[in-house]
């Protein structure tokens, strides 16, 4: 799929890969001719939400929680560290991992083109692509988080990261308390997509859902 992975390295405008251009062309023609209804198409795709992408994000996070050396390497160079795990064929040229701490909560906003790390996270949530989320997240991150039912302590700084075609971000959420001695596989179960975007926390052992 090499043609799908070529970036033109422009910073100022949107990017679509050759394959994405063809898919969009087909979809707009079929929509104009009344063969498909974009909403119905979206519904089919959403039904496969959990089946798109490789979902390695949770495993990467769990490994970082249990292996300090890996975590250090991950924060140093996300793409390189994930590449050493062997089972990830491609995570983009520059995947930057940002760590949540009691002092700082990180949150990522999307840019609607190919910047979302779906190889790690699967399909982006629909709200993530919406323009209101992006503009509000920059202006009023606490308000957006409140909408998701997420309360970040007042003295915790909130840092918003804007993906670009070259740099994509993955949030390393804080390891939940009460998980001492847990295995990587057990811990991975607690890592949600939203916790890796920064619009949620990892699940806690007491509240498994």
């Amino acid at each position: 799929m090499s043609s799908d992975h070529d970036h033109h390295h422009h910073h100022d405008h949107s990017e679509l890969s050759e394959t994405e251009l063809r898919v969009r062309a087909l979809e707009s023609i079929l929509t104009e001719k009344g063969y498909v209804d974009p909403a119905a198409l979206d519904a089919i795709i959403q039904a496969f939400e959990t089946r798109i992408g490789l979902h390695h994000g949770a495993r990467v996070v769990a490994k970082a929680w249990t292996d300090p050396t890996f975590k250090e390497a991950l924060l140093e160079d996300g793409s390189k560290a994930i590449g050493t795990l062997g089972h990830v064929s491609r995570v983009g040229d520059h995947l930057v991992v940002v760590e949540n701490t009691p002092e700082r909560h990180n949150m990522v906003v999307c840019t609607l083109c190919s910047c979302y790390p779906w190889e790690m996270l699967g399909l982006p949530p629909v709200w993530y692509k919406a323009a209101p989320y992006r503009s509000r997240a920059v202006k009023d991150p606490r308000g957006v988080l409140a909408d998701f039912g997420v309360t970040v302590p007042k003295d915790t700084e909130i840092r918003v990261w804007d993906s670009t075609a070259e740099t994509r971000f993955l949030v390393l959420p804080m390891r939940p308390e009460g998980t001492e001695g847990w295995s990587e596989a057990q811990l991975a179960e607690l890592v949600t997509r939203d916790s890796m975007i920064g619009t949620g926390f990892a699940k806690t052992p007491e509240a498994p859902s």
């Binding site: 898919v23 087909l26 063969y35 498909v36 198409l41 795709i45 496969f48 089946r51 798109i52 992408g53």
Partner: peptide, 18 residues
């Protein structure tokens, strides 16, 4: 079915609809 990328699911969904 499993998909490697969002566009793959889009292409699948279009075939389903057609």
């Amino acid at each position: 079915p499993v998909f490697r990328a969002p566009w793959e699911a889009q292409a699948f969904a279009m075939a389903l609809t057609l």
